[in-house]
Design a protein around this nucleic acid. Structure first.
Lengths: 114, 114
DNA sequence: TCTATATTCAACCATATAGTTGAATATTTG
DNA sequence: CAAATATTCAACTATATGGTTGAATATAGA
């Protein structure tokens, strides 16, 4: 199971994000994926391996050609971390707001009280 | 404005994600952040700069001490990319399902037609 | 079987990253 | 003003990363 470190560092490269975008239209061969990129086939092959290692791509072999497809489940670790972090923060902000409102109420109470 | 490359590579490090978690309780000084980590203050200071450069942390100076706080808005680029990619995929799967249902309908039609 | 195709593997190079230590800067305190 | 504190800056090292080229492997086709 790939770690969140793997997932996020795999995504932290624009070539690799482009590759994922390319695969939105369906599976492609290594050389099809490489074609629009301004780098060697080998370089793209390495990027593919990184994505695969992160669980973001699935590889299928047919004869001498490899077909790659995107594995949306691979995004889960990253998506979950981000959502968890956002949620944590939302909670904090809510608590802060509650506290502020309580302060405000106290203040009003105080003002009313003299 | 920090790029998605910055955001994702900043998050792709467990020390930095821990720092963000530490800040969920509120702002902290550089040395407070560094304390639980098994590395030099300088190393942590560098990680903080990376997070700051990615727009994930906000720095406030008070006298000789710097207070860091988490900036949840900094997660947006990463969160958006992931959501966009997931959405794209969902759309593709929906289209596929629709196509399969159409095929199924055609087949039934064919069978009925003899 | 010989040749072409699709791809990986291996070695290498340049640059980036994560860590170190030591010195410099800014501010507070005695 | 001198000393302590909080932090950054600078220089260095080791390792990781992204790229290259050339050779190896596996399969398809003449």
């Amino acid at each position: 199971m790939p770690s969140i470190d793997h997932t996020l560092s795999a995504l932290a490269d624009s070539t690799r994000r482009q590759i994922i975008a390319q695969l939105s239209m369906g599976e492609q061969r290594v050389s099809d994926i490489a074609e629009p990129h301004q780098m060697s086939l080998n370089a793209v092959s390495k990027h593919i391996k990184v994505l695969e290692g992160a669980g973001l791509l699935i590889r299928r072999k047919e004869g001498r050609t490899y077909y790659l497809s995107f594995n949306p489940a691979g995004l889960a670790p990253a998506a979950e971390w981000i959502e968890r972090t956002r949620a944590m923060w939302t909670k904090r902000l809510d608590a802060l707001e509650t506290a502020l409102m309580a302060d405000e109420a106290d203040k009003q109470e105080g003002e009313r009280g003299g």
